[in-house]
Amino acid sequence: MALHKLLVDDFYDDTYKLIAIHCGLEDYRLAYLLNQSLGLNLKRKSNDLDFEYLKSSYSIFEWNNASQYVTWNLVSNVCKKEEDSLYSTGLFQSEDKVIKIFNLVPEHKSVDYFIKISDEIQNINDKLILHKLQNIQQIVTSYSVNPSQIKSKDHLIF
């Protein structure tokens, strides 16, 4: 008797473009600048991306352009959590705060934000988008990322 095995990855299709952004802006300020320069209407979602097993959450902005069948997402790649650190030095215990940094996509730790463009009919010109992003003075750099080369691409399914 033949054994048939189905993998979940067989059904997931990489029909999105991913752009990495390096900048020191707050998420709401970057969303505002993207809305102005790219003609978007990004709005913050009511719930952040929460990963309970990592105890981290990431802000996410979304705009669904129904006329062009495109969904735009701006998601933070960095989550900073302040936690208590208990350690003892000799006879006395000291309580200090430690800031732990988590990344949504650990392969790209230096990236501050990702733009995920899910387009069904593949009509988005990513070179034009990158050119417009380079014209925003507050953005240090931006570049395309191949989603198939990311090991933790499951974190980008939202």
Results as ranks from 00 to 15, higher is better:
residue 148 S to Q: 12
residue 78 V to A: 05
residue 80 K to M: 06
residue 97 K to A: 10
residue 27 D to A: 10
residue 128 L to V: 13
residue 66 A to V: 14
residue 36 Q to M: 12
residue 61 F to Y: 13
residue 68 Q to Y: 11
residue 28 Y to C: 11
residue 108 H to Q: 10
residue 77 N to Q: 03
residue 43 K to A: 11
residue 88 S to I: 15
residue 29 R to C: 06
residue 114 F to P: 03
residue 62 E to I: 03
residue 117 I to M: 05
residue 146 N to P: 06
residue 38 L to Y: 04
residue 26 E to N: 08
residue 55 K to S: 15
residue 113 Y to P: 02
residue 144 S to K: 10
residue 46 S to V: 11
residue 126 D to E: 13
residue 138 Q to G: 01
residue 40 L to I: 01
residue 101 I to E: 15
residue 5 K to R: 05
residue 55 K to G: 15
residue 15 T to N: 11
residue 143 Y to E: 06
residue 45 K to H: 11
residue 54 L to C: 07
residue 88 S to E: 14
residue 61 F to I: 02
residue 95 E to F: 13
residue 36 Q to R: 14
residue 31 A to E: 00
residue 121 I to F: 12
residue 105 V to I: 11
residue 37 S to P: 05
residue 65 N to D: 14
residue 112 D to H: 06
residue 88 S to K: 15
residue 131 H to L: 13
residue 71 T to N: 11
residue 7 L to I: 02
residue 154 D to H: 12
residue 97 K to D: 10
residue 48 D to S: 12
residue 18 L to R: 01
residue 22 H to G: 00
residue 31 A to C: 03
residue 1 M to L: 08
residue 34 L to Q: 02
residue 1 M to T: 09
residue 92 F to I: 13
residue 116 K to L: 09
residue 131 H to G: 12
residue 64 N to T: 08
residue 147 P to S: 01
residue 28 Y to M: 13
residue 110 S to D: 09
residue 70 V to K: 00
residue 59 S to W: 03
residue 112 D to N: 04
residue 45 K to E: 13
residue 49 L to F: 09
residue 52 E to W: 12
residue 42 L to T: 02
residue 44 R to W: 04
residue 86 L to C: 13
residue 155 H to K: 10
residue 144 S to M: 07
residue 20 A to C: 04
residue 34 L to I: 02
residue 139 I to G: 00
residue 68 Q to G: 07
residue 52 E to S: 15
residue 81 K to L: 07
residue 117 I to V: 15
residue 31 A to T: 01
residue 145 V to Q: 04
residue 45 K to T: 07
residue 70 V to A: 01
residue 49 L to A: 09
residue 114 F to G: 00
residue 110 S to C: 05
residue 129 I to M: 03
residue 51 F to K: 08
residue 111 V to D: 04
residue 154 D to R: 12
residue 66 A to Y: 13
residue 110 S to N: 10
residue 136 I to A: 02
residue 2 A to T: 08
residue 95 E to Y: 14
residue 76 S to H: 01
residue 42 L to N: 02
residue 148 S to L: 09
residue 127 K to D: 11
residue 119 D to T: 14
residue 38 L to Q: 05
residue 75 V to A: 03
residue 73 N to K: 11
residue 10 D to L: 03
residue 13 D to G: 06
residue 90 G to Q: 09
residue 83 E to A: 08
residue 78 V to K: 04
residue 153 K to S: 11
residue 38 L to P: 03
residue 103 N to K: 09
residue 77 N to A: 00
residue 128 L to G: 13
residue 62 E to W: 01
residue 105 V to K: 01
residue 154 D to Y: 12
residue 61 F to W: 12
residue 39 G to E: 08
residue 120 E to T: 14
residue 82 E to N: 12
residue 141 T to S: 14
residue 17 K to H: 09
residue 146 N to W: 04
residue 87 Y to C: 09
residue 12 Y to S: 10
residue 136 I to P: 03
residue 137 Q to E: 12
residue 41 N to Y: 11
residue 113 Y to T: 01
residue 16 Y to P: 06
residue 113 Y to H: 04
residue 102 F to A: 11
residue 156 L to K: 03
residue 77 N to R: 02
residue 66 A to C: 14
residue 91 L to H: 15
residue 84 D to C: 09
residue 17 K to E: 08
residue 12 Y to M: 08
residue 103 N to R: 10
residue 143 Y to M: 03
residue 36 Q to Y: 10
residue 20 A to T: 05
residue 149 Q to H: 08
